[in-house]
């Protein structure tokens, strides 16, 4: 009988652990079952990625539509090549859209915002963005302003 009680308590303990993991997954990391859905990959070349990091978000009109997979240097053009994966259901991004690096809040993390173009054709998997706008660099902004250009 005592053995049985112990078993039940230990069982509850393990269930509590699993439940806690579930909370961490769903509530804390915002993992939803649908986020495991398929994505397609597009590229963008930036002159300066600033503080952009992998796993950062890619958004359109403030709605997250994908994540940044990797950031690497393109040795031929000396630009940063950012690989991002976009949710498959967002398949109608106009081909002449541009990727802009923005900062959330004054000190928040940097993310890529897709500003919509007007082309009738859409970006396909493997395509690159037509135009990009690099991270706003506060120092450069100030020096530009000071030198009056």
């Amino acid at each position: 009988m005592a053995q049985r009680t112990t078993e039940i308590i230990v069982g509850l303990f393990m269930i509590a652990g699993l439940a806690a993991l579930l909370v961490l997954a769903l509530q804390v990391s915002g993992l939803s079952p649908s986020s495991a859905e398929s994505t397609y990959t597009v590229y963008a070349d930036f002159n300066d990625t600033g503080g952009l990091t992998p796993r950062g978000r890619v958004s359109m009109a403030g709605v997250t539509v994908g994540t940044i997979e990797s950031i690497a240097l393109n040795k031929e053009t000396f630009q940063a090549r950012v690989t991002m994966s976009i949710r498959s259901d967002v398949d109608n991004i106009p081909a002449d859209s541009s990727a802009v690096i923005r900062t959330s809040g004054l000190l928040g993390e940097q993310y890529i915002d897709i500003s919509i173009g007007g082309d009738m054709e859409s970006l396909q998997a493997g395509d690159s963005f037509y135009s990009t706008q690099s991270a706003m660099n506060l120092e450069r902004l100030i020096s530009n302003f000071a030198s009056g250009r």
């Binding site: 509530q27 804390v28 990391s29 915002g30 796993r55 978000r57 997250t64 993390e109």
Partner: peptide, 19 residues
């Protein structure tokens, strides 16, 4: 509170690495 948390915590990179 929750939104900020969810956008920055990654399940595999943060939670699973902790585990």
């Amino acid at each position: 509170f929750w939104g900020n948390m969810q956008s920055s915590v990654d399940f595999v990179d943060d939670v699973m690495n902790g585990v």
